[in-house]
Design a protein around this nucleic acid. Structure first.
Lengths: 136, 136
DNA sequence: CTTGACCTTCCTGTAACTGGAAGCGCCATG
DNA sequence: CATGGCGCTTCCAGTTACAGGAAGGTCAAG
């Protein structure tokens, strides 16, 4: 399979696939003409990566997940720990976003949104009183 | 005021303040020794920026907000539109994160998390069936 | 033989900073 | 007066996970 085929089947851009090879997540063979020659196993890995990425795992986390996936002697506890850690990160992000949403919603509701210049959103940003955590 | 003072008062790293000057968000004066000389108005702007950033506005959105803030003839509708648009982005992000959270939570609950290699998390990632949207 | 789709590599750019090196200014102490 | 140490300066590199695009090789069809 050439890169276009796997890109189509895995639902990933060819650019991304080349990038994944560059950083060592996959190691496709090469044809005589220099084209990448993907095996079924490469496609399988790419699909795995695509799904892991879509769940928000970072590239490095995906690398670890792939290693665990290929290690037939792994302990499921290791996988679970990684997933739970990631889940905590997701939850934290949601909490942060909800705080932003709440504050901003309040400001938006207070704003008339007409042709006049008076704007509680701007004064809310200008005045102290709401440090509004910016964790990450 | 030197940069250390405003960094302290605005709650922003000095590095960030230099960066904001570099991209034209602020224009502090300079003392004879080459040090940045911040006025109260600069500090005020930095605090404004810090709060806007903490609400998740991008740098470019902050630039627009600052311009609106300084335009005494602005229409509050313009500010509100920007804020509402941002609010939609936040809501979309939350929705996306919640979908990830739900899927991953299901997988995690199905995983024993012991010393055995059997792991529903890995098989869930490996098998097709859950495209798991990765919008942004 | 040419055209066009597909492939290759390489370089640049993104957002919003962070870290660090090299070097000057300023204040205080010995 | 010399020296230390902190604070300031600029500039360069690195971060994440790719995307865009240029320049050029390959392959099948007409």
């Amino acid at each position: 399979m050439n890169i276009g085929d796997v890109a189509q089947k895995a639902g990933l851009p060819a650019k991304t696939i080349r990038y994944y090879e560059e950083i060592g997540l996959i190691r496709p063979l090469r044809s005589g003409n220099g084209y990448r020659a993907f095996r079924e196993s490469d496609l399988h890995k790419l699909a795995f990566l695509g799904r892991a990425r879509s769940l928000g795992f970072s590239i490095e986390e995906c690398r670890t997940l792939m290693a665990l996936y290929e290690d037939k002697g792994r302990a499921s506890a290791d996988v679970k720990a990684l997933a739970e850690d990631h889940l905590r990160q997701i939850a934290a992000k949601i909490t942060e976003l909800r705080a932003m949403e709440a504050t901003l919603t309040t400001l938006v509701h207070a704003c008339a949104g007409d042709a006049r210049p008076d704007c509680p959103i701007l004064t809310g940003l200008a005045e102290p009183g709401k440090p509004c955590q910016s964790a990450d």
